[in-house]
Amino acid sequence: MAACIEDVLAKAEKDEAERLKSISVQKELDLEFDLGNLLACDKNSVDAHGLKSTKKEDFLRSLARDNTQLIINEIWKHPTERVEEVIVVKLPEATTPLPREKPPPKPKPPTKWEQFAKLKGIQKKKKTNLVWDEVHKEWRRRWGYKRAKDNTKEWLIEVPENADPNEDQFAKRNKAKKERVAKNEFNRLKNVARAQKLPIPGQGLVPTPQQSKSDLTRAISVAKVSTASAGKFQERLPHEKAPKNTGKKRKFQPLIGNFSDERQKQLDILKVMDSKKPRIDMTKAVNRQMREEDSESRSNARKGPGKKGRRGNMSGKGKGGGGKGKGKGKGPKGKPQNQRGKAGKR
């Protein structure tokens, strides 16, 4: 009995020791740590015997446990602090470079201005965000809402010497601003289109420094039909050619024209339609085949009962084969024939 108790106690002790393994791990070579990535490299040779043994899983688990213990030991060497009842450690910078997940972004295609600036060697100058506003005596943003030196907030504008005195200078200024905004937006769209290699917006008859011949001919044809009569009374130059690609007009034959011509045309259409028909009509061919089979089986069925008796006398073999086949054919196919006969009589 005593031995038994001792055994149990020893076992419990052993289990406890197993559960709470020592934090000190012995290794031949020290591990290399990169705590920023929580990474440790174990350069010790792996025990080949342990790997091949039947307790491979246990061996690997214990190896992993030991190495993890070493990382945690390493972490504890760093200064700790307490933040909201939790002990935290500030990890050092990572030393192992990791490859990025996605390819680096492609550089944006340069806008027209960036191209020009590069050509001329124009550098971007950094300007301060805030500037001193003399009127309000405070620092204000250089642009945007509540900007310094806001000329839209002026209550009076001096009419320039050479301007029309009745012109509304405020409206003029607003209009100019709106046009500048619109132009900027247009240029932005052009940049987007150029980057995506789309046709640049604003096509048609926009003023260009050098118009090609096709541009000019198109401009002429557009101008010629842009009259009140849609170009009907527009005179042509002596050797001017008729404009191309001006669209087709629907035209119908006269209501009472040449009737024989019309008939001939319709007959020609019929001829073409006939020639396009397939020579062998598949469904028709299949139908014909089906019909032949039907009539054959019907005639066999009709002959059947008379012959059956005779054949039976001749040979058992012939009767068995022939009788079976006919019996099958007779059942379903005999019926419709009868029905049809009745329908015809009615």
Partner: peptide, 24 residues
């Protein structure tokens, strides 16, 4: 108005389903 060629063709195709070449 008279039928255009296209219209004639569509109509004949439909008619020919019933009367075949008897359109002539």
């Amino acid at each position: 108005r008279p039928l255009t060629d296209e219209e004639t063709k569509t109509m004949f195709e439909k008619l020919s389903k019933y009367i075949g070449e008897n359109i002539k």
